[in-house]
């Protein structure tokens, strides 16, 4: 276990170093993809427990607006401080909404979570102080007044995203191997049995919901800092749908699935944009269909297949 943690840390450092030589567009694309990967990692925790949230956009958008609004009012560009605010506010809201949501399963959970994100969308569209549907601009991030290039640029946000994904990834990897992590699958398989074993199903789901909200808030905060602009579209249900799409693409079998899925999704989308500006949606749709048909457990199942072949 220690070895694999070191391996992930090493990979994080390598990816960060690669950012120095990458073209700018790729750095930016990877930053956004990694931020989405964070949100989908949270979604993965819920999916393992058999719950599909169509409302992670709520925390993604809330995290982004926390960073934007706090940055404006407190006049700070300190990324760590802003991301902390985003996570705290998201967890606080999830602590309230979660009390209600963890009573529901299946389609009811999906629809309820979507309803809450659409409420945030509706409120933001009506609030002209936050720029209504046009949103507003966010200043680029600094780390206690420092940036890697001396001036604000995409590299800073990239570094934040890589660090966040590495740290959260290691956490989720270990969490999924802890009793609390396995409890998720147990809940999916048989709730009554879990209760008889002496665990509270509601508590298990509640904690997963809080963790997922924290990750979505962090992802939203990083997106806001990287893109420099936020709008209510981040809370719209299509954004939440995109996260589910990425989860299906990457696969829910492993923590790396969401990250691979997100990077793949962004790469396919941007090249689809370039190759066929009129029918890029079709290319994305065909890609998902192909993955569902040939790799029902997502892209990650390829890795599993090859490692299994090797060990057997």
């Amino acid at each position: 276990m220690r070895n694999s943690t070191l391996l992930v840390l090493g990979a994080g450092v390598a990816v960060m170093a690669a950012g120095m030589v990458m073209p700018g567009w790729l750095t930016f694309l990877l930053t956004l993809a990694l931020a989405k990967g964070l949100v989908v990692m949270g979604l993965l925790l819920l999916m393992k427990a058999g719950l599909v949230s169509f409302g992670q956009g709520l925390y993604y958008c809330l995290g982004a607006y926390c960073v934007g609004v706090a940055g404006d009012y407190l006049e700070t560009q300190n990324a760590l401080f802003l991301m902390l605010i985003a996570v705290v506010v998201c967890v606080a809201l999830a602590a309230v909404i979660g009390l209600l949501l963890c009573r529901y399963r299946d389609i009811f959970f999906a629809m309820f979570s979507m309803a809450f994100s659409m409420i945030l969308y509706g409120v933001l569209v009506k609030s002209s102080a936050f720029g209504s549907s046009d949103g507003f601009n966010v200043k680029p991030p600094l780390l206690f007044g420092w940036t890697p290039t001396g001036e604000p640029g995409p590299l800073m946000a990239y570094g934040l995203a890589v660090t966040a994904v590495t740290v959260v990834g290691i956490f989720v990897w270990n969490y999924l191997r802890s009793p609390m992590g396995y409890a998720g699958e147990a809940v999916r398989e048989n709730e009554i049995r879990v209760e008889y074993l002496g665990s509270s199903v509601r508590r298990i789901i509640y904690i997963k919901y809080l963790l997922a909200a924290a990750m979505a808030g962090l992802g939203g905060g990083i997106t806001a800092l990287a893109a420099g602009h936020i709008d209510p579209e981040m809370a719209y249900w299509t954004t939440s749908g995109e996260f589910v799409f990425i989860a299906l693409m990457g696969g829910t079998g492993h923590v790396a699935g969401p990250v691979i899925g997100a990077v793949l999704f962004e790469l396919i989308r941007t090249y689809a944009f370039q190759i066929s500006p009129y029918t890029w949606q079709m290319i994305l749709g065909i890609a998902l269909l192909a993955i569902i048909l040939y790799l029902p457990k997502g892209v990650w199942s390829l890795v599993e297949r090859f490692t299994k072949e090797k060990t057997s």
Binding site: W25, F28, L29, L32, G135, T223, A227, G228, H229, D231, E233, M234, R269, T270, F273
Partner: peptide
Amino acid sequence: GGATKQAS
């Protein structure tokens, strides 16, 4: 695709 997508 939205403002973030267009910035990208």
